[in-house]
Structure formats: structure tokens, C-alpha cells
Design a protein around this nucleic acid. Sequence first.
DNA 1: TTAATATATTCCTATATAAGAATATGTCAA
DNA 2: TTGACATATTCTTATATAGGAATATATTAA
Lengths: 122, 122
Amino acid sequence: MARAATTTDVFNAIAEPRRREVIAVLADGKEYAVNEVVVRLQMSQPTVSKHLGVLRKVGVVSVIKRGQHRMYRLNAAELKPVHDWVKTFERYWTHQLGQIKERAERKARERIISKTIGAKEE
Amino acid sequence: MARAATTTDVFNAIAEPRRREVIAVLADGKEYAVNEVVVRLQMSQPTVSKHLGVLRKVGVVSVIKRGQHRMYRLNAAELKPVHDWVKTFERYWTHQLGQIKERAERKARERIISKTIGAKEE
DNA sequence: TTAATATATTCCTATATAAGAATATGTCAA
DNA sequence: TTGACATATTCTTATATAGGAATATATTAA
């Protein structure tokens, strides 16, 4: 089986760094024509169009035609699933001291186990 | 150019849903042997090993050997870049009312533009 | 040593890129 | 109509899966 299509869901769509760059341009909530994105990111027009196409398929951006331009706008709410998912791990890095302490304790535990059971160090 | 390797960064690594399932098993912070993950997720052992291998390469999990088992543990801090990135869009869905209002206003604006300039509806 | 258990690795195949080049499509302006 | 401009699409190519099957490796127990 091959990797899931980039258009399968938002997780796959945002995996590509250039797509996150495109999103960054739209992050102010304003609408942008394809060529404005092209100029700002120094990518080729087809490249930008394709990336916008992927983002559009997963709903992260929406388009409206205006004259000969197509104005793209961020639909940030579609990123919420990513936020919801990763937010469940937030506690692991918010309390830095607790985290460091926990890590130290774990390491100590592992060392003891190594000596006792004879398992190799990582 | 092909898609970036799944082991390029955490964004690519977590794009695969089964890898997020594996992460979910480890989410309680305890350590798990490969086979425990296999049993819980009903995936084949090689599949689990491979997914854990990808997560290990990007640092999301770490391993220590204990006897004939390899104990995997979540290294949740490695997910922070994802959190940091998506967090910048949080405001777009936290204030639901504001969001809905904004969306309505935008739609209205678009409708006016359509009538005025003659652009087609999305 | 040998068998059993746990895990990783290799081989295979269908599939899906991402980017560049070339081209098609659509829209406006004269 | 014709040309200029904006954007999308098609084609090509190198590359990277994900999973299943088979196998290799490592560790423990008898």
C-alpha cells in the first residue's frame, strides 16, 4: 500500500512544508491571488497552484473568482483537528520543571533496571 | 521530486493515521513492548515495528531494551513543533461567535462583490 | 545446544507524489 | 478579434511509501 494521498486529510496536507508556507501567507485572514503568493514565496506559479489545490481539497483554503484572479482565503477552522489532537500532549511540555524532573527520574529508573536485569543501555 | 520521507520531520511522521494510533497507545506515558501495541491495535507485528521505527527516527518515541523486549515510550515533547505551529491559528475557532459573525460578514461582502463586479459564486 | 519467543529487516508491489516544462483555459482590454 | 495576463492542467520522472510474506536476529528457557 502506498502512502495516503495528500488530499486525504489535513494531517497529510500540512505535512508538506511548502504548503505550510502557503498557509503562512494566508495566515492574516486576508485573501490573496495566486500570483501574490507566487511573488511572496518565490515559487513557480504551477507549484503554488498545485499546493493551493491540495489545500482546497481538504478545505483548508477556499477560493472565489474575481475577474481573472482567483482569490484564496484561509479556512483556518479546518486546522482544528490537528490542534485538538496535539493539544492532548500539551501537558508534556508546559510544565518544564516537572518534565525535566520526570525525565531524570525515568533515566534513574532505567539505570537501576539495567544493573538489576542486565538490559543494555539505549 | 517525490514526497518528503516520513522520517523527515514530525509533521510527515504523524500524517499516517496508524502512527497516530500507535502514539495514542503510548499516550499515557508508560512504556510498552511492541507486542503490547500489536495486541491493542490489532496490527501485524512488522507493521507496528515499522511505524515505531519511523516515530523513533523523528524522535517521537524512544526505546530501551529489556530482556527480549524493546520497551517504547512516548517522547511527547517532539510533538511541540506541531503544537506551536497550529496554535497560531487557535484564535480562528476559539471565539465561536466571533468566527461565525466574521464568516457571515465575509459572505455578505462576497455577495456584494459578485453583484458589483460580476464574479461568479464559489 | 535447541526450542520458543520477541522484534527487526528484507523483498515485493501498487500507488502517489513534487517539481519543472509545456500547454490549455479563462478573462480582460483595445 | 487579438493580444496580454492569470491560473490550472497535463506530462514526465525520480523517489518513497505501507503492508504482507518471508526471513533474520536476539534473547531466554530447558
